[in-house]
Computed example of a mutant assay.
Amino acid sequence: MRRLRRDRLRPLLRESRLSTDDLIMPVFVDENISSPKEIPSMPGYFRFPIHDVADEVGKAMELGIRAFIFFGIPSHKDDVGSSAFDDDGVIQKTLRNVRKEHEDAVLITDVCLCEYTTHGHCGIVKGKEVLNDPTLPILGKIAVSHAKSGADIVAPSGMMDGMVKAIRSALDENGFESVAIMSYSAKYASSFYGPFREAAESEYAFGDRKSYQMDIHNGSEALREVKLDLKEGADIVMVKPALSYLDIIRRVKEAFNVPVAAYNVSGEYSMVKAAGRMGWLDEKEIAYEILTSIKRAGADLIITYHAKEIAEVL
C-alpha cells in the first residue's frame, strides 16, 4: 500500500478534493454599525455595515469563492420580525448593493425570524410557545422579499414543519420559480451555535429551541426530515452542524443522492481559532482537514467561516 503514498503520486489518487467551488461564505450584515466590528467569540470574523459588504464579497471572489450566505442584524425588532420582510430591510438593501457590483456572485439568504424578533425565537410566539403554522406565511413573505432583491437561493433555517412548501408556493405564486431552496433539513439543537447567537444578536428571551430543532441523539429522524423537505420542493438539503454529524451527512447522501450542504458552524470555527491562538494547533491545516472530512462524508457544499483562509490555501 505504501507504494502509492509517495509525494508525487498522492495527488493522483485522492478520492476527495476540496475546491473553492465547494465553499459558501457566511456574511453578517449589521444595520447599526458604520465600520466592521470583530465578533469576540469568533476571532478574525466580523460584522459589516451594509456599505462595506460588496467590497468584502469582492475580496472573497478574488480568492475563488463564488457563493455567500447573508445574515442580517436589523435596527428594529418586534414580536413578528417585520424587518425580515421589509423591502428596505438590511438584507434586502445588501442584496441589491452586492448584485449591482458582482453579477456573478451566488447570493443566498437565511430565511428565519430569530435575528428580527424581540424574543429571539424562529417563529411567532404565544406566551412561551413557538407556533408553527402562523409562522409559515411570514417565512413565505421573507423569501419573496429576498427574491425580489436578487437572491439566487433562499435558505429556511427555522425548522418549522411545512416551511419548504410554504416558501415554494409563495415564490412560485410571485413569479420566482427559478429561485432555489436550500433547506436546513436536519438542524440539531446543538451547543455549537453559541458564538453565532452573539454574532447575529439572536439570543432567545426564554426557554430553548428544542421544540423545533432536532434531538442530538437521533439519526433516522434526519432522514425523515430530509424526505419531507424534498417532497415539499427543496432543491438542496442541509445538515447542521457538520463536524459532529458526519454520519448524518453520509446517511443523507446515500439515501437520497441529492445536493447536500453541511454547515461548519460557529462553535466548530471558534474551537479551532482558540486552539490556534494558544499555539496548540495549526489553524489552517486543521481547518483544511475538517473541511476535507465534511466533503469526504458526502457534502457537496460547505458553509464555513474558514472560507477565505482555506481559499488562500487552495
Score class of each variant (00 low, 15 high):
R8S: 10
P11I: 06
E15N: 04
L18H: 01
S19M: 14
D30F: 03
D30K: 06
S35V: 15
P36Q: 05
E38Y: 14
I39E: 05
G44Q: 02
G44M: 07
F48A: 10
I50F: 07
H51P: 03
H51A: 07
D55K: 15
R66I: 06
F70R: 04
F70Q: 05
D79N: 14
S82A: 09
A84H: 04
A84W: 04
F85E: 07
F85G: 06
D88G: 12
N97G: 14
R99S: 11
D104C: 14
A105W: 03
I108L: 08
V111I: 05
V111E: 01
T117L: 02
H119I: 01
H121E: 01
G123V: 05
I124H: 11
I124N: 07
V125Q: 04
K128S: 09
K128Y: 14
V130K: 08
V130P: 04
V130Q: 11
N132F: 09
D133S: 09
D133R: 13
I138Y: 08
K141D: 05
I142P: 03
A143H: 00
H146P: 03
S149H: 10
I153E: 05
V154P: 11
V154F: 12
V154D: 05
A155F: 02
M160V: 04
G162D: 06
V164L: 00
V164I: 02
V164K: 00
K165F: 10
I167P: 00
R168W: 03
E173R: 12
E173S: 12
E177N: 09
I181E: 01
Y184Q: 03
S185C: 00
S191A: 12
P195Q: 12
A199G: 12
A205K: 11
G207A: 02
R209Q: 06
S211R: 13
S211A: 13
D215C: 04
G219D: 04
A222N: 02
L223S: 03
R224S: 10
R224V: 07
D229W: 03
L230E: 04
L230N: 04
K231D: 15
G233W: 06
I236R: 00
L243V: 07
L243Q: 11
S244D: 13
R250Q: 05
R251Q: 05
R251W: 01
V252M: 01
V252L: 00
V252C: 00
V265S: 08
G267C: 08
Y269V: 11
V272S: 13
V272I: 13
G279W: 15
E285T: 12
I286V: 14
I286M: 15
Y288T: 09
Y288C: 07
K295Q: 12
R296C: 01
G298K: 04
I302E: 01
T304G: 08
T304S: 12
Y305C: 13
Y305F: 11
H306R: 06
K308V: 11
